[in-house]
């Protein structure tokens, strides 16, 4: 509406860009830049997330056709022993991975940081498994832990069928998971340890703190933001555990390693119960959101104090 006075209307054909059109121009540019990503994001992440809620109230199959059935899927789910088995196994798996993986990561980070010339080489050795595809990891460990011809049982004289044993299957998968992913935690811990300023250590050392006391009074509290970040990432990752279990144990022996996502896969893709499987998905999502929220609060408190 306010025409720019500075510029004389020399060329009458294109109307001079007004403020309104500048604003329009700005929005157009923003939209063009934002749209490709946001469109994909809404379509392939947000939409399925909302749709899974809707599907959980239907008896849909894998092509998405189904009728509204109310809360029937939910009553069936909570009355189904298999669901509780899967939930329990998932929690057990988290217990067997999240905490050990964090502690081992911290320990190895401390060991690596004190090295000089060998530092990069040793770090690479621990991190290398992290860049491997999961099926490579499971193939390699299936071979090393093979009950008859595996190297491990040969060296130890054990006859345990690691991935098929009702007691050992879950811990074995947990162990493989730690071997595979601990490098990630080491990296984060190294970054965290480097961020602790040397002055703090020097001051504490002057006070006579050393060894264990130095660790507990300085390192551990200063490292807490990183530690809790790692715990959070671990926790969320292990709730979604599927690949290693599917490839190593298929949930067996007799559902001893059945976890939530595998249960959802079985019901949804193998038995075509899309609606019921969506219900498991909703529960999984609710749990993960809840954990994220709790951890987020803890994390903030930890940072503030």
């Amino acid at each position: 509406m306010i025409s720019p006075p500075a510029r004389p209307p020399a060329a009458p054909v294109p109307p001079p860009p007004g403020r309104a059109s500048q604003v329009r121009q700005k929005y157009l540019t923003a939209a063009l830049l934002v749209l490709p990503f946001v469109a994909l994001y809404l379509l392939f992440l947000i939409y399925p997330t909302l749709r899974v809620l809707q599907l959980s109230f239907t008896n849909a199959d894998l092509s998405g056709n189904g009728a509204y059935v109310g809360v029937q899927n939910y009553t069936r789910l909570f009355g189904e022993p298999t669901f509780w088995t899967a939930l329990l196994n998932t929690l057990l798996f988290i217990l067997l991975t999240a905490v050990p993986n964090t502690l081992i990561g911290l320990g190895l980070a401390l060991l690596i940081l004190r090295l000089n010339r060998l530092k990069n080489l040793v770090l690479a050795a621990f991190f290398l498994p992290y860049v491997l595809p999961v099926s490579v990891v499971t193939n390699v460990w299936n071979w090393v832990l093979d009950s008859n011809f595996g190297l491990f049982n040969f060296l130890t004289g054990s006859t345990v069928t690691w991935f098929q044993d009702p007691v050992w299957a879950l811990p074995s998968v947990a162990f493989v998971t730690i071997w595979w992913t601990v490098g990630f935690n080491i990296l984060l811990f190294i970054a965290g340890l480097r961020n602790i300023s040397p002055e703090i250590y020097e001051a504490a050392a002057l006070d006579g703190a050393a060894g264990w006391r130095l660790f507990w009074s300085i390192t551990w509290p200063n490292l807490w933001p990183v530690t809790s970040l790692i715990l959070l990432l671990q926790l969320i990752a292990q709730f979604k555990i599927f690949d290693q279990i599917y490839l190593l144990t298929q949930g067996g022996p007799f559902d001893k390693t059945l976890v939530l996502l595998l249960y959802a896969y079985r019901e949804g893709f193998q038995q075509q119960h899309g609606g019921y499987s969506s219900t498991i998905g909703v529960v999984l999502m609710a749990v993960i959101l809840l954990v994220s929220a709790i951890q987020f609060r803890l994390l903030n408190r930890g940072e503030r104090s």
Partner: peptide, 14 residues
Amino acid sequence: MIPFQASLIPLFIL
């Protein structure tokens, strides 16, 4: 915070 794994079914249908 959204795990895509939880909505595999609708993603597949889509």
